[in-house]
Simulated scan of single mutants.
Amino acid sequence: MDMQKEFPMTQSGYVQLQEDLEELKTVKRPDVVEKIKVARSFGDLSENSEYDAAKDEQGFIEQEITKIEDMLRHAKIIEDNGNNNIVQIGKTVTFSEVPDGDEEKYQIVGSAEADPFEGKISNESPIAKALLDAELNDSVIVPLPDGSEMTVKIISID
């Protein structure tokens, strides 16, 4: 039996994916269809770079639509249980590096809504895996990409 991967996500992440899908279907898909139509009017398709670029863009858009539909179909909405003493998906964690005290703050989310530039890290990332299920004031050892480790102390969980 084929097991589908679940995509854990917050309610806001689910809504954002729905909005992204709607934009792809109602704005970007019709735009690229129009680009293809215009490019066809230029004549010989074998030497038509506008047509090739538009077809590539169409393929990308269709692939994104399929991917987002799959994520939404297999989404698992993470409910906040109100416990701010344990790190869980959906929680925002502030920690400091030991011993230098540099503070960092991330929300742990499912891979579908991860965006490190927005402070959202995937629950599948090494740092999130190390932090999940840890408690407030715990010291946690986090593996680094170079094979070394760093120790962090959890300051707050929201």
Score class of each variant (00 low, 15 high):
K5P: 00
E6M: 08
M9L: 13
T10G: 02
S12F: 12
G13H: 06
Y14T: 06
D20L: 06
L21D: 00
L21I: 00
L24H: 05
L24Y: 10
V27N: 09
R29M: 15
D31E: 14
V33D: 14
V33N: 13
E34D: 12
A39P: 04
A39Y: 02
A39H: 03
G43F: 06
G43Y: 07
D44A: 02
L45R: 12
S46V: 02
Y51A: 08
Y51K: 08
Y51P: 01
A54Y: 06
K55I: 14
Q58G: 05
F60I: 15
I65V: 10
K67I: 02
K67S: 12
R73G: 01
H74T: 07
K76L: 09
I77K: 10
I78Y: 04
E79A: 14
I86M: 08
E97G: 01
V98G: 04
V98Q: 04
P99D: 13
G101L: 11
D102T: 13
E104L: 11
Y106R: 10
I108R: 06
I108A: 08
V109G: 01
G110W: 04
D115A: 15
D115M: 13
E124L: 11
S125Y: 05
K129T: 05
L132F: 04
D133F: 11
E135R: 12
D138G: 03
I141W: 11
V142F: 07
P143A: 06
P143Y: 08
P143W: 06
G147Y: 03
T151K: 14
V152W: 07
I155E: 15
S156F: 01
I157L: 09
